[in-house]
Each structure stands twice: as structure tokens, then as C-alpha cells.
């Protein structure tokens, strides 16, 4: 079977890895005239182990936190060499490499107005090093550095508002996407690439290993995050909200939390479930996600508990 993707199979990602699917969707939408700069992380490790590479585009990995700056150097060299008009530059990282250790370089790159698309593959923890909390880990999550105990319910803080931070830099395009909505994701990548200047897309990518869900549920869990209102799909142009993915009938957050081991400790805690439901409600209100009319069939589905 012929494989025309620019991200080839044979890499060493876990079964059901949301990031691997999203990375393929991103590069195939961006096309072959693209140079990719990758921070250290799962994606880098499973796609570029010498002497093999999954990348059929020019691709470079330097360090954990500097993809945005290395990409700036790539962009500057392309301008100098007269090749920028025909070449896209993508700087991509996980949530830790974006929102924590890589934020300074990213902020510098946005502020300089570099013509670069930054992608954040948000699997909501440092999965590569063994599931430690990051700035994008959601409230209440059980990670190896925010374990629940008699004095803790898990991660005590909400997700860092990266899209808002990106918007505050006055960049022309900011969006969230989900591996559960692949066409929407690819449309956003294509749109971003067509806009000159810095662009930011944050993609929700389930991690069966870190989230402790069945590997075949990656797609459904990604969709449930959107359908509950916990991961709103939003799109900004020049700081203005231009589109959101409407939810016909928001599902209770419990449907999203139940299949994931990382939230198991919350399931018998009505107080905490209420708190997480409130996060979803706030999103639904803030972004006006609810719609009266819908063409979509109800996709309600009860997912099994993790083993």
C-alpha cells in the first residue's frame, strides 16, 4: 500500500498515540515545502531515532526549549537566501515545551512577528519523562508529580491560558484543535500557513499511557473533551474570536473523565466533579458554544472504565 504522507509509519510511538496522528495531519496539511523545528519530547524521540527518521520533510531537533528560536534562525536564513516566500516554517513542541520551558523563546518569536506557525501538541503532561505535571495539565489530574492523597485531589491548578497569552502578543492567528476532529485540524493548519506572521495552534492529543485509557479510545476521548466543553475549539484572527465549534448538547464531564485513569480518584467525589463541570460550563458560556439547532447526530456513547 502506497503511503504518500510526509510523516511515515514505522516510528516508535505507543499504540493509540494522539500526538503521532496529529503530527501526520499537521505536516500533510502544511505540505512538502515546509521546514519543521521540533522541541525535545515524545514526538521527537519516537520519530527520529538514529539511523531512522519518520520525516519526509527537512526537520531539525535542537533542545527542549528553543524550537521557536531555532525556527527564527531558519526563517532569517530563508529570507537572506531569498527562499522564504516558497517555504513554510513550523516550530512544534509538546505542552511542556510550549507553555513552560519553551514559553520565553516562543514569546520572543511571536513578539518579533516571525512568519512561523507554532504547534503545541497538548497531551496535558510531561508524558515523555513519565507523566509529570505541566502548565497545561488540567485541574484535578493525577500525574506522578501531582498525585492525589489525603491532602491533595491531584493537580491543584487550571490549565495555563495559552491561546489568550498568544493573543496578548497581537499575533494574527490563534486556534485550538483536536485530533478528534481531523478535518477541522487540517483546515486550521492550512489557514494558518496562508497568513503571514506568527500563528499558534494548540492541538488536544490524548495519550493512552499517561491518561490511562484504552488505546482504541483516543479518537472518542478527544471528541468527548470537545463535546463536554472542557476543550473548546476556538479560532481567533487578529485577536478576535471568529469561529467556535458549537456543541449541540453538551455532555456531562463525567463521560470524558470516566474512561481515563488519571481522573479515577475524582469519580466518587461529587464536590470535585461539580468543580470540573463548572470549568466546562464556563467555557460553554465564555465562547457561546451551545447551539439550538444541530445537524449532527448525538454521539453519546458510554465508554468502558480503564482496566
Amino acid at each position: 500500500m502506497e503511503n504518500n504522507s510526509l510523516f511515515k509509519p514505522g516510528h516508535t510511538a505507543c499504540a493509540g498515540c494522539g500526538q503521532a496522528i496529529a503530527a501526520r495531519l499537521v505536516i500533510d496539511a502544511a505540505g512538502s515545502n515546509t521546514i519543521v523545528v521540533n522541541n525535545t519530547g515524545c514526538l521527537e524521540v519516537f520519530s527520529s531515532q538514529y539511523p531512522e527518521s519518520a520525516w519526509n520533510v527537512p526537520w531539525i531537533h535542537s533542545l527542549f526549549e528553543n524550537a521557536a528560536a531555532v525556527a527564527s534562525g531558519v526563517e532569517a536564513a530563508l529570507v537572506y537566501l531569498g527562499k522564504k516566500e516558497t517555504t513554510n516554517v513550523i516550530a512544534q513542541a509538546g505542552d511542556g515545551g510550549t507553555a513552560d520551558i519553551g514559553l520565553q523563546a516562543l514569546s520572543g518569536m511571536w513578539e518579533r512577528g516571525a512568519d512561523i506557525l507554532s504547534i503545541c501538541y497538548d497531551n496535558e503532561a510531561y508524558e515523555n519523562t513519565g507523566i509529570q505535571r505541566s502548565g497545561l495539565t488540567p485541574y484535578g489530574t493525577n500525574t506522578t508529580t501531582t498525585p492525589p492523597g489525603t491532602k491533595s485531589i491531584g493537580n491543584p491548578r487550571p490549565k495555563k491560558p495559552m491561546p489568550e497569552i498568544a493573543n496578548a502578543h497581537g499575533i494574527p492567528y490563534v486556534a485550538t484543535a483536536s485530533v478528534g476532529f481531523p478535518q477541522d485540524l487540517q483546515r486550521k493548519v492550512k489557514k494558518a500557513i496562508s497568513i503571514k506572521g506568527p500563528k499558534y495552534i494548540q492541538i488536544h492529543v490524548p495519550c493512552p499511557l499517561g491518561w490511562r485509557h484504552e488505546t482504541e479510545l483516543t479518537y472518542q476521548i478527544a471528541r468527548l473533551a470537545v463535546e463536554t466543553g472542557l476543550y473548546p475549539l476556538i479560532e481567533y484572527e487578529n485577536g478576535k474570536l471568529v469561529a467556535v465549534r458549537k456543541i449541540a448538547q453538551p455532555k456531562p464531564v463525567e463521560e470524558y473523565l470516566r474512561p481515563q485513569g488519571r481522573f479515577k480518584h475524582l469519580l466518587n467525589n461529587p464536590e470535585e466533579l461539580k468543580q470540573i463541570q463548572e470549568i466546562a460550563e464556563n467555557n460553554i458560556q465564555k465562547y457561546n458554544l451551545k447551539t439550538e439547532v444541530t445537524n449532527e447526530k448525538s454521539q453519546t456513547q458510554i465508554l468502558p472504565n480503564p482496566k
Partner: peptide, 15 residues
């Protein structure tokens, strides 16, 4: 850190 990273990227791209 970024200054060094920028020139790294630039040389890697052929400048």
C-alpha cells in the same frame, strides 16, 4: 539562549 539558537537554525539552513 535564543541568540545562540537563532544562529544555530540559520547555519543549519545554509547561511
Amino acid at each position: 539562549h535564543s541568540a545562540a539558537s537563532v544562529v544555530l537554525g540559520a547555519v543549519a539552513t545554509g547561511a
